Amino acid sequence: MIYADNAATTYFKPEKTIAAVCEYLKHPGNPGRGNNHMAMDAARMVLDTRIKLADLFDCDFDHVVFTSGVTESLNTVIQGLFGPQDHIITTYMEHNSVLRPLYRLGCRLSVCGGSTEEIKKHIRSDTKAVIINHVSNVTGEINDIEGIGKFCRQNGLLSVADTAQSAGVLPVSLKESELDVICFTGHKGLLAMQGIGGICLGEDIDIRPLKVGGSGFASFDTEHPKQYPSALEAGTLNVPGIVSLNRSLDFLKECGIENILRHEQLLAEEFCRILSSFDGVKVYREKEKEYTGIVSLNVEGMDAAAVSDILSREYGIETRAGAHCAPLIHEHYGTESTVRFSFGINNRKEDIRECSEALKEIIKIRGHEA
């Protein structure tokens, strides 16, 4: 099998990550819910993971909040900061995890490209924030969140970055970029398990909790605690998920995310170079922009789902077809779906050759059938 669906979830998980989760499940302590040694060990591990994430995202460790993933993170932030009276600038590259909460709130929206210059054109007197993904989950296009964060700070706007496709692959610094909020997930570039993610908050950001309940302390108070991270962490944490993040962060530090990025980019660039000689293949990339290891394409005259199905059934190549929960970028490119190859740390140059050969054969068969 050639796994080229890392944008959905990474196939490779470090052995130490897997072992640590299995070991925790033998001694499943609940942090903040007891003074027994298992609960205390779990609490220390959770704190250690916050510190590691704070180091990765360059923020204060007590402003690292755990969630079930980037969807919950974005819902918490959007519904906790904004209302229908607010004007929000976002991009056509956004995932439905951004768009649907905004639609649900009834915010006044302006949708544009992902550059600072594009964003400038849409600022109004009632503009409150810019919400943008760091990397498009459809094309892999990298947006300049550092420049946008600084621009927002200079203009009194809040800035929220969705790093679902960049955390663990690209450097992300909350303080250097002057971003207000970073939302992340664990099961993609961070190489952890599904069901864990989080929010990194800058100073003076006051978010209404999406949910309230048990906090492990101040149980007689009628209101949920207001201090971070407890303010946004009602209920029992996903401790196995946090354990997986803890160990995967160690692995990423040893590898160096800059090395992972270059590896994935080289694979994608080689794939696109080969595809450029194929007739009837449309690749959704623009020469002047920078991309990660994601490549979306269509084969002329063929449904994207059919291409992806053939790749899987006949060649053992796992991709994803569809709109990828990002409708506006498909409208931008005039398509309803694409075949997405997303290369990761687990892929090698041999995979690129086999993917290319498979597509060549599919195109040849399509030509005979036509």
Rank of each mutant, 00 (worst) to 15 (best):
D5Y: 12
F12E: 00
K16M: 03
I18S: 00
I18P: 01
K26M: 14
P28R: 12
G32F: 09
G32C: 04
H37C: 06
A39V: 04
V46H: 07
R50T: 01
D58K: 06
D62Q: 12
V65I: 15
T67Q: 12
N75S: 14
I78R: 11
G80H: 01
H87K: 05
T91M: 06
N96I: 08
L105F: 03
R108F: 06
G113I: 03
I119E: 04
K120R: 13
D126T: 07
T127L: 05
E141I: 10
E141A: 14
G147Q: 13
I148A: 02
L158R: 13
V160Q: 04
T163M: 10
Q165L: 14
A167L: 01
G168M: 04
E178L: 07
E178A: 08
F184Y: 07
K188S: 10
G189Q: 10
L190V: 12
L191I: 06
A192P: 11
I207A: 11
G213F: 11
A218T: 07
Y228N: 14
P229Y: 01
E233Q: 15
E233W: 09
L249M: 11
L252R: 10
L261S: 07
R262K: 15
R262W: 07
Q265M: 13
L267Q: 06
F271T: 00
F271W: 06
I274M: 09
I274V: 14
D279F: 13
K287I: 09
G293W: 01
I294Y: 01
V299A: 05
E300L: 05
I310P: 00
Y315G: 01
I317D: 04
I317C: 02
A323N: 12
L328Y: 09
E331S: 07
E331M: 02
H332A: 06
R340W: 03
F341S: 00
K349R: 09
S356L: 00
E361P: 03
I362H: 04
I362P: 05
I365R: 15
I365N: 05
G367P: 04
